[in-house]
Computed example of a mutant assay.
Amino acid sequence: MPDRTPRTPAPDQPVAVVTGASSGIGEATARGLADAGYFVVLGARRVELVERIAADLGGLGLALDVTDEESVAAFAAAVPRCHLLVNNAGGALGTDAVAEANLDDWQWMYDVNVLGTVRMIRALMPTLEASGDGQVINIGSVAAREPYRGGAGYNAAKHAVAALTRVLRIELLGKPIRVCEIDPGMVQTDFSLVRFKGDQAKADAVYAGVDPLRPEDVADAVVWAATRPARVNIDQILMLARDQSSAQVVHRRDA
């Protein structure tokens, strides 16, 4: 059983908040930031998992549903202070054509990717600014840069995340807060399993014959951006596997 004793950061230790931190990119990012010296507050709906990971890192794992205002408010109230917010929670559902769109899926994608990001920024902005050297890193996607067949709902959501990130950068100019957008391509996580609603065969086919990015690759980019000098703002990063040159152009090896 994980040790659920509440933990607090050392007096001079920077604090990072990572959403969607129960697995994949979020978990890898939390681990990378902890290795870099941050006290990490991990949030996710699967609270047992973030508690277990936090116990490994000497951090704090808390329940968080970014689509729920009360959950976000309770989470933010438990964050001791915040120097870095990594908005990683997100995901895709389905591959419907626009004319056949499942609006429930679109609503979920917009709520978790876009409004979830906004809720977290709004909740933690005062403490980010009060830190004197705050930073927001939003995890986007190649889907934010390149529309593709079957991706309309996710494309729309991630384009919106990119737009709000760039507007936030403009709005915060002159304040002690940096804003960064990191857009990964294909990453070997549960992303496709969620998109295909548990169809393992479809999810496996996405990565067949490809050497995709790993969660720790994206985490490395987050840690690098977060640890630049305060004068340096890494505005945007697009990162793809060597086997991928754009959203749907992928080199596949024979099985």
Rank of each mutant, 00 (worst) to 15 (best):
R46W: 01
A76H: 03
A205C: 07
P229L: 15
P14N: 05
A123S: 12
G140N: 08
T19P: 07
V112Q: 02
I137Q: 07
R122D: 14
A163T: 07
N233V: 06
F39A: 03
A208V: 11
M125P: 11
P184M: 08
I139P: 00
L168Q: 10
I53C: 03
W106I: 15
L85F: 06
D190C: 09
N138I: 03
D235Q: 14
E171S: 07
A54N: 05
Q236P: 11
L128A: 06
D183R: 06
F39D: 00
D96N: 13
A74P: 06
Q236R: 15
V187D: 06
P9V: 08
R145H: 15
G151T: 12
T189L: 04
M1Q: 12
V98C: 12
A76M: 03
M109V: 09
I25P: 00
L49H: 09
R231W: 12
A130V: 04
A203L: 09
L193Q: 11
K197Q: 15
A162L: 14
I121H: 10
R122W: 03
A226E: 01
V17C: 01
I170N: 13
A34L: 05
V112P: 00
R81Y: 05
V136Q: 01
V72R: 04
I177T: 00
W224G: 07
D111Q: 14
W108P: 05
A160Q: 08
L33E: 05
A221H: 12
K202Y: 00
A144W: 03
A63G: 15
L93F: 11
A247G: 14
A226D: 02
T227P: 09
D211S: 14
G58S: 09
S131H: 03
Q236F: 13
E69Q: 12
L238Q: 06
S246G: 08
E171T: 08
H251W: 12
A219L: 07
A156H: 13
K175M: 14
V112L: 06
R52H: 12
I234W: 08
I177F: 08
G58D: 04
M125L: 15
A157P: 06
E216Y: 10
L93W: 08
P184G: 09
A208F: 11
L124E: 01
V15N: 00
T67H: 06
A230M: 13
Y110S: 12
E69H: 11
A101H: 13
T5I: 12
F191L: 14
A221I: 11
W108M: 10
R252H: 09
S22G: 10
D235N: 14
E146L: 08
D12R: 13
D68E: 14
I177W: 03
L213W: 01
S71N: 08
V222M: 04
W108Q: 10
L42V: 07
S141R: 01
V18Y: 06
G134N: 04
A156K: 07
A226W: 01
Y148M: 13
A89N: 04
V40N: 07
V72W: 06
R242D: 15
P126T: 00
D65T: 04
K158Y: 05
R119G: 01
N88H: 03
G174H: 09
G59A: 09
N102Q: 14
D254W: 09
E51L: 03
L168K: 07
V179K: 01
G94D: 00
S141A: 12
V79K: 04
A205N: 13
A160Y: 05
L33F: 09
N113S: 13
Q244K: 10
E70I: 15
A241M: 02
D217V: 10
P212W: 04
A230Y: 10
N233K: 07
